[in-house]
Amino acid sequence: GLEHMADEEKLPPGWEKRMERSSGRVYYFNHITNASQWERPSG
């Protein structure tokens, strides 16, 4: 619901949600550090 939507907005600075086109899996990418990970970043 709306709570989940708001929660997605609160990623740490630099992080954004991305989708891997080949598999459709969602991952997280940090455009500041060029880091990427499957787990939702905390902090």
Rank of each mutant, 00 (worst) to 15 (best):
P41Y: 03
Y28G: 00
E8S: 10
I32H: 09
H4M: 13
L11S: 01
K10C: 15
N34I: 03
R25F: 04
R21I: 15
Y27N: 00
H31N: 13
E16V: 10
Y27D: 00
A35G: 06
E3G: 12
L2Y: 14
Q37T: 06
S23V: 03
M5S: 12
M5E: 13
Y27A: 01
D7M: 10
P41L: 01
G43C: 15
R21K: 14
E20W: 08
G24V: 02
S42G: 10
P12F: 02
K17V: 10
Y27E: 02
E20I: 13
S36E: 08
R25E: 04
E3P: 12
L2I: 13
K10I: 11
E9C: 15
M5I: 13
E9R: 07
G1C: 15
G1E: 11
G14L: 02
A6N: 10
R21Y: 15
N30M: 02
N34R: 12
V26G: 02
E3V: 13
E39F: 07
R18V: 07
E20D: 15
H4Y: 10
R40L: 07
G43S: 12
S42K: 09
M19T: 15
W38L: 06
E16M: 06
S22A: 12
P12V: 01
N30Q: 02
N30S: 05
E9M: 08
R25L: 07
G14K: 01
Y28R: 00
K10Y: 11
S22Y: 10
A6P: 13
R25I: 05
K17Y: 05
E20R: 05
A35E: 13
R18S: 02
W38K: 04
G43A: 12
E8D: 13
E16Q: 07
E8P: 09
P41D: 01
G43L: 14
W15Q: 00
E20C: 15
T33Y: 06
H4W: 11
T33R: 04
G1K: 11
E9N: 08
K17G: 02
I32W: 08
S42D: 11
M5D: 14
S42Y: 10
G24C: 14
M5V: 12
L11D: 09
E20T: 09
Y28W: 06
M19F: 15
P13F: 14
P41Q: 00
A35P: 01
W38S: 05
E16S: 07
S22I: 14
P41E: 01
E3T: 11
S36N: 05
M19H: 11
T33G: 02
R18K: 07
R21E: 15
E8L: 07
E3R: 08
N30R: 01
A35F: 09
W15M: 00
E3N: 12
E9V: 07
F29N: 01
Y27G: 00
M19Y: 15
S42W: 09
G14V: 02
S22H: 14
G24N: 07
L2H: 13
P13T: 08
R25W: 03
S42N: 11
P41N: 01
K10A: 13
R40A: 07
A6L: 13
A35K: 14
R18Q: 05
G14M: 04
S23H: 04
E3W: 03
A35N: 08
P13R: 08
S23A: 03
P12M: 03
R21S: 15
K10H: 11
H4G: 12
R40H: 09
K10R: 12
D7K: 08
Q37L: 04
D7I: 10
K10E: 14
S23Y: 04
T33V: 04
R40K: 11
Y27I: 03
H4F: 12
D7Q: 10
L2Q: 12
P13H: 10
V26H: 07
L11P: 15
E20V: 10
A6Y: 12
N30K: 00
E20Q: 13
D7W: 07
L2V: 11
I32L: 10
G1I: 12
E9T: 08
L11E: 15
A6D: 14
D7L: 09
M19N: 06
H4E: 13
E3Q: 13
M19I: 15
R40G: 02
P13I: 08
P12E: 03
N34Y: 08
S22R: 13
Y27C: 06
S22P: 09
H31Y: 14
G43V: 12
R40F: 10
Q37G: 02
E20K: 05
S23E: 04
I32G: 05
G14W: 06
S23T: 14
S23W: 03
